[in-house]
Amino acid sequence: MKITPETGWKELPQGGVIPEAGNAEQYITGSWRTFRPIRDEEKCTNCLLCWIHCPDSSIIVEDAKVVGIDYDHCKGCGICAEICPPKIKAITMVAEKRD
């Protein structure tokens, strides 16, 4: 079942549990970001150090290759850019523009 701010007490699951595992994915934390990590595909060697050190599970990896960044959840901490080996530096942090 989908629990919304309109859900009344009769519909809520008993005991205060959350029945929908992993639904925090539906919550967007990308709006917290002030700097956006931009990855240079050409420079990236897919060492995956950014992936293993990401606090927000936001480095998208498929078949052992980085295929993108999950901007819905990335908070822009910049650990990925910092951890990227000095000789490679495939990720740069760019200020977010607000409309």
Partner: peptide
């Protein structure tokens, strides 16, 4: 998989 004992604020 259930999550037991979450943070429950003024909205629920």
């Amino acid at each position: 998989p259930y999550t037991f004992g979450p943070l429950d604020l003024y909205d629920f």
